[in-house]
Amino acid sequence: MLIFYLSFLKTPVKVWKQIVRLQRNLLWGGAGQDRKIAWVSWENICGPKNRGGLGIRDIRAVNLALLGKWRWRVITGGWKRELSVAEFDLLQDLLHVVTQSPLLEMEDSWVWTLDPTSSYSVKSAYLAITSVEAAPEQNSILTRVWKFWAPSKVIVLSWKLLQDRVPIRQNILRRRVFREASMSFCALCGDFVESVDHLFITCDCISKFWNNIARWLGFELVSPNNISNLFEWFLGLGMGRKSRLGWLLIWHAAVWSIWISRNDLIFDRGTISIESLVDKVKLSS
């Protein structure tokens, strides 16, 4: 129903901002009414997945692209009506000028240069409005997160993790949710600030966890500098597409298990065991 109205009416600024607000609140806060932290900018979220975005459509750009279809129909003759007297006089003046100029022996036509078919398409107009070229996928780690066998919520965690946009204690402190720096220490070891790289790589128990995973896979892991390097290490394990998908499934299972175990420790006062973490990864992958 929303698309129907967007196809015929230009949405007032106040309305589309309210729609975006509802989308943003649903994305970060679920069905609740409480306002949540937006960890990734809306502009990046609306970017296509092959450019590292989440692929959610910009409602304003969709509206303009749909309305452009009617303008295209008007100028290409797809929508005709009787000319008024004033318009008819203008047409006669135009024809008088045109007949005085040399013309090529071919029929003129409108061409939409943004689409290979030379005809207007809502998709090409949307990409033009959002300044996104319909080009091949970029060779970026964010574009490669989505092409693997894993639930969407698990892949979204990896997508946010590689951008350092997860509610790690260091990030929460930066947002001034914590008032004291002491509240930002790691939930697992309590000795260092809980950053993405610390929680998922350098924390003592997590470092042992990755070494156990590497031994299980039959590799020797050189401790990476950051989470992106670890992800690229998993990407480099597979020689073919199916093999690479399998290795990345293990990556998704590992980071998801770490994150869930960390949250259980904080909110449910659970415990973390390296052996149980490794077993979870084996079962999940």
Rank of each mutant, 00 (worst) to 15 (best):
I19E: 02
E82R: 13
K242F: 11
K153F: 05
W112V: 14
V62Y: 03
R262E: 04
E107D: 00
I59V: 15
S184F: 06
W159I: 08
L161Q: 01
S184P: 10
R57I: 04
R174T: 03
I19G: 01
F200G: 10
L103K: 15
L230M: 15
T202Y: 07
K242H: 11
D58C: 12
M183V: 06
L104M: 07
K242G: 01
Q170S: 11
K282P: 02
W210E: 08
F219E: 06
W146T: 05
G53N: 13
Q23F: 11
S109G: 06
R165E: 06
N44G: 00
P116N: 08
I129N: 10
R21E: 12
D268T: 10
A187K: 04
S121Y: 01
T271F: 13
N139C: 03
V281E: 06
S261I: 00
S121W: 03
S257L: 00
L173K: 09
H198C: 13
D93I: 04
I3T: 14
L114P: 04
L66Y: 05
M1S: 11
I168S: 15
R262V: 02
W247M: 05
R73W: 09
P102E: 10
T202K: 10
S121T: 15
P151A: 04
V74H: 06
N225Q: 07
N226T: 06
G30S: 02
D115E: 13
R244P: 01
V13N: 12
I260L: 11
L265S: 10
A61S: 15
A86L: 10
L27T: 00
G190Q: 10
I266T: 15
E275C: 03
S284Q: 03
A31S: 12
N212P: 00
I260P: 02
Q23Y: 09
K147R: 13
N139T: 05
W28E: 06
Q23M: 13
V132Y: 03
V40R: 09
D268V: 11
F8C: 09
I56T: 05
L64A: 14
E232Y: 05
I19A: 06
I258P: 10
E180M: 06
K49W: 01
A61Q: 11
R262G: 02
V222M: 10
L235D: 15
R35C: 05
D108K: 04
L157S: 01
W259V: 09
D34F: 01
N225D: 10
D89H: 02
R71Y: 09
R51Q: 14
H198W: 04
S140Q: 11
K69I: 04
S182T: 10
F209A: 09
N139K: 11
T202R: 11
L94M: 07
G52Y: 11
N63G: 08
G47Y: 11
R241I: 14
A214D: 08
